[in-house]
């Protein structure tokens, strides 16, 4: 009897494994072809001194990696990425929750806000880059005009190494906050209407409902939002490349822009690959580590 139970459990597990394998297969195949293979290739290339195009790369072993460890520019870029990451999480996610909560509480009337708020997400980086360079221009830009209106002077935000990075972070937040709004709106659908109605009957007001009921139920959504924002910020490229190209004085240089310039503009594919590899290791480590902390108890199971 007991033996039968074990075989049955085993059988069931085998069945589970089988179903899991079938369901996972397409994703795993695509990832191996399009992502694992390029990663392996990157690590391979990083062992060479190679301009990216010649047919005889020179093997230098760990040379590029040693250089990477001592490359101030890379670590400055990494630090910039960390700043982008911290501020993005602190700005985008709370704003996203606020917007989603407003939409959730206001109901149908707020649809128009949801649509208007979402527009930044839809615009292409080309247009955003163009309009913000003009809006941020020291002379005649919108920010400077506002400052002058209040009796201040012209402000050079993008050209000043002290403010450039924060300005870019602002623009990135402008573009990506809507995503976290939509994400939280979707998260709210998990907080079922019944719970809300029950809490209203119990006499809870909206603030209490939000703090004690909605927020805890949104927690899984927020955790994954934080991870997404983290990874997204650590490998960010687009707007920075369009708006500042990493300047002035490397103030906005990110790992991705640095890697891109090395690999494709400076004919240093070998070292560029080492930077890309370093990026990959750092980002994976940080995100997996954070995930483990956030899901601590569950992973331990």
């Amino acid at each position: 009897m007991k033996k039968d139970g074990i075989t049955l459990a085993r059988k069931r597990q085998r069945n589970t494994n089988c179903v899991a394998a079938i369901f996972l297969a397409p994703v795993i195949i695509l990832l191996i072809v399009y992502i694992f293979y390029p990663i392996v290739e990157t690590f391979r290339v990083s062992a060479f001194d190679w301009n990216g195009i010649s047919s005889n790369p020179k093997f230098i072993g760990l040379g590029n990696w040693v250089k990477l460890l001592h490359d101030d520019k890379f670590w400055t870029a990494f630090l910039n990425n960390v700043k982008v990451m911290v501020l993005s999480i602190l700005i985008q996610i709370p704003l996203g929750i606020a917007m989603a909560t407003f939409v959730e509480f206001a109901g149908k009337k707020a649809t128009i806000f949801k649509i208007l708020w979402f527009i930044p997400m839809l615009m292409s980086s080309v247009a955003i880059g163009f309009l913000f360079t003009y809006a941020l221009a020291t002379n005649g830009g919108i920010i400077s005009s506002i400052s002058q209106f209040f009796g201040g002077t012209n402000i050079d935000l993008l050209g000043n190494p002290d403010t450039a990075l924060y300005t870019v972070i602002g623009v990135i937040a402008w573009q990506f906050t809507p995503f976290y709004m939509v994400y939280c709106v979707a998260g709210y659908t998990n907080v079922s209407k019944d719970v809300y109605e029950a809490s209203v009957i119990d006499g809870a007001n909206k603030r209490q409902y939000f703090v004690h009921i909605a927020l805890p139920l949104l927690k899984p959504t927020l955790k994954s939002a934080a991870i997404l924002s983290m990874v997204g910020s650590l490998k960010y490229f687009d707007l920075v490349y369009v708006m500042t190209g990493g300047g002035p004085s490397n103030a906005t240089e990110l790992m991705a822009t640095y890697m891109y310039k090395l690999s494709f503009a400076q004919f240093n594919m070998g070292y560029g690959s080492a930077v890309a590899g370093g990026m990959f290791i750092l980002i994976s480590f940080i995100s997996l580590f954070t995930m483990r902390i956030l899901n601590g108890r569950k992973e331990g199971r």
């Binding site: 163009f130 360079t133 003009y134 941020l136 221009a137 020291t138 002379n139 012209n154 050079d156 935000l157 993008l158 050209g159 450039a164 500042t244 300047g247 002035p248």
Partner: peptide
Amino acid sequence: FPEGVNSLSEDDGQ
């Protein structure tokens, strides 16, 4: 030179 010269964009015609 114009103010904020290092952040002006040649491509965008500034």
